[in-house]
Amino acid sequence: MTGQASLSSRPLARLWPRRRPSVLPGFGLTLGFAVFYLGLLVLLPLAAVFLRAAGLTPEAFWALVTHPRTIAALRVSFGASLVAAFINVGFGALTAWVLVRYRFPGRRLLDAVVDLPFALPTAVAGIALSSLYAVNGPLGGLLAPLGIKVAYTWLGVVVALTFIGLPFVVRTVQPVLEDLDKGQEEAAATLGASRWQTLRRVVLPALAPALLTGFTLAFARAVGEYGSVIFIAGNLPYRTEIAPLLIVIQLGEYNYAGATALAVVMLVIAFVLLLAINLLQAWSRRRLGGV
């Protein structure tokens, strides 16, 4: 009888396996709280922006978003943000590599300096960059004889956006490099691979998801940047005027519907670009997992 009871209980044990207790409450409660928190802090303000922009007629909305000044400001914001994000991917990965793979005096100080753009107020960063890269500044004075002008140009916008976006790439790539198995690099060298081949075929594929994540964070941070850009950009309409500044100008003229309409356009463009980047990141992870 005991043997029959034990045999009959085995299928039940397979049907209802014992669960390990979870640290958090059940799925329904945690999901509900997460959705409520996300909706309160993110979705509700975004919905208010769209509702406010709906106060414009379709003709007025289209005339505003297709105005040459609006298109020029969007081109400056998104173009400079993309260029700055690409620059940060290269130099951010290089900085993370140096911090992880080498031991040298002042390494901890350099590691702390990377986080300064996080703590520094953006307006202070803009004033500092303007002072450095002005024609009579320490760096601008050296570049002026070479015919390179940074302050109050499109290049100055890129410099400011690169400054505030660098930590996102470094802090995203750094932990991945720390966990990267050096044995794979040693095995590649043993098999006769050069340093460039090891970097291209072993290191970069492993870092690709982290690099894409850092690029996305740096780009998203740069698109909405305002404080550090307006001091070094010069804010010339059709040339160095950014879209966030154009929104502030609309608010200063009490054109709240126009300001929210510009915000909606920026949100839609940023969402499409970020969605494309996330899809590319998911594809790279699947490809890496398949390899």
Results as ranks from 00 to 15, higher is better:
Ser6Gly: 02
Gly3Gln: 12
Ile87Asp: 05
Leu24Gly: 09
Pro209Gln: 13
Leu245Cys: 00
Arg19Tyr: 08
Glu178Trp: 03
Leu7Thr: 12
Thr260Leu: 06
Trp283Asp: 06
Gly55Met: 03
Leu43Cys: 14
Val203Arg: 10
Phe168Ala: 14
Leu7His: 12
Phe61Lys: 00
Ser81Ala: 15
Leu120Cys: 09
Gly92Tyr: 01
Leu46Trp: 08
Ala134Gly: 15
Leu236Tyr: 01
Leu132Ser: 04
Ser131Asn: 14
Ile232Gly: 04
Gln4Asp: 08
Leu275Thr: 15
Ile242His: 00
Gly147Ser: 08
Tyr226Ser: 00
Ala34Thr: 11
Leu51Tyr: 09
Pro175Leu: 10
Gly126Asn: 05
Gly258Asp: 06
Phe86Ala: 15
Arg287Met: 05
Gly214Lys: 02
Ala187Phe: 07
Ala119Asp: 00
Leu279Lys: 11
Arg221Ile: 12
Ala263Asn: 07
Leu217Gly: 01
Ala85Phe: 09
Pro25Leu: 10
Ala276Asn: 08
Ala34Gly: 10
Leu166Ser: 13
Arg108Asn: 13
Ile148His: 05
Arg107Asp: 08
Ser131His: 03
Thr95Gly: 03
Leu177Asp: 11
Ala128Val: 03
Tyr37Leu: 14
Arg285Lys: 15
Ala263Asp: 08
Leu24Glu: 03
Arg171Trp: 05
Ala189Ile: 10
Ala84Cys: 13
Leu288Phe: 07
Leu143Asn: 07
Val272Asp: 05
Leu51Pro: 00
Ala84Trp: 04
Val42Trp: 04
Val203Thr: 15
Leu211Lys: 03
Gly79Phe: 13
Gly26Lys: 12
Phe215Gln: 03
Gly227Arg: 03
Ile127Gln: 04
Arg19Pro: 00
Gln197Cys: 07
Leu207Ala: 06
Ile242Ser: 02
Phe33Tyr: 10
Phe231Asn: 10
